[in-house]
């Protein structure tokens, strides 16, 4: 098991022949991901590292049975790419690009909703079901298969925690990046619902940060969960009114503070740790 993607997922890479797309296609293939096609506006008809390149996602779906897309096109073209993938029938669309206009993201998420597709991101590092498949830009070597479901807003911080879990002998069922933008397709709540249903997942780790109230909303659902949850929240040292790198990480008019998130999560029975290096020991303790 695992959530959202596994060894059967058939991936099309939109923007496969660009710098980033090309490098990460290689990494995904190396990891064992079933990359069946790529798209490129100028290189259709060619092969790229043995993978056929098409002009459209529709062709990749019809000829290669692609059912999930990862998007590497520039932000200005990302909405078009996402709509194309969703319309062609992809049920998972992973949006890597940063700096996508927020109103484009709203439309992408609405369109995905109409078509029953899941959008991961934008501004995400993607997701990985260790030992099975990865759709994203995360380093391959820090993950291992296992019982922990990991969901984070941020990339490198998520790597830090995944590596510590793996070192502590705690592998992951799926690790997923929610994305650092204000509007994203899969929020903590959506992901935790799926972890709760996934038999392989025995415990969840939530890595949140200041801004918005996705953590508070997740707390409502966690109250009903049977699986234990450990949370680390970044940004206690952040001043209000300043964007801490992510467009979504900002305390505005007193909303999105770390304190409100911590309180909500603790009230839901979550073990909230103070520092990132305390996550793995806390999970170990809960799993016994």
């Amino acid at each position: 098991m695992a959530i959202i993607i596994n060894e059967e997922t058939r991936v099309v890479v939109q923007g496969m022949t660009g710098n980033q797309g090309s490098f990460h296609t290689g990494q995904m293939v190396k990891y064992g991901t079933n990359v069946v096609a790529g798209t490129s506006p100028t290189k259709a008809g060619q092969d790229h590292e043995g993978i056929p390149v098409f002009a459209s996602v529709r062709e990749a779906v019809l000829e290669r049975g692609a059912n999930a897309s990862i998007v590497f096109v520039p932000a200005a073209f990302a909405k078009d790419a996402a709509f194309e993938a969703i319309e062609a029938g992809c049920k998972v669309v992973v949006m890597i690009p940063e700096h996508i206009p927020v109103q484009d993201s709203i439309l992408i998420v609405e369109y995905a909703h109409f078509h029953g597709a899941k959008v991961v991101g934008p501004n995400t590092y993607g997701l990985i079901s260790p030992g099975k498949a990865k759709m994203g830009i995360m380093p391959n070597h820090i993950y291992a298969p296992g019982p922990v479901g990991l969901v984070a807003r941020s990339g490198t911080l998520s790597y830090e925690i995944a590596a510590a879990l793996t070192e502590a002998g705690l592998g992951q069922s799926t690790a997923i990046g929610m994305g650092g933008d204000p509007v994203v397709g899969q929020v903590f709540n959506d992901v935790l619902h799926q972890f709760e249903k996934d038999p392989e997942t025995k415990a969840c780790v939530l890595v949140g940060e200041i801004g918005g109230s996705a953590e508070e909303e997740a707390a409502e659902f966690i109250k009903t969960m049977t699986k234990p949850v450990v949370a680390y929240l970044a940004g206690r040292a952040a001043p209000p009114g300043k964007r801490m790198g992510h467009a979504g990480a900002i305390i505005e008019r007193g909303r999105g503070t770390l304190e409100s998130k911590r309180k909500a999560l603790e009230a839901a029975g979550v073990t909230v740790v103070e520092m990132p290096w305390e996550v793995a020991p806390a999970v170990k303790k809960l799993l016994g």
Partner: peptide, 12 residues
């Protein structure tokens, strides 16, 4: 490197 890591570094 990374916004989340940078925030966590300040916290640490």
């Amino acid at each position: 490197n990374g916004a989340g890591m940078a925030m966590a570094t300040l916290d640490a």
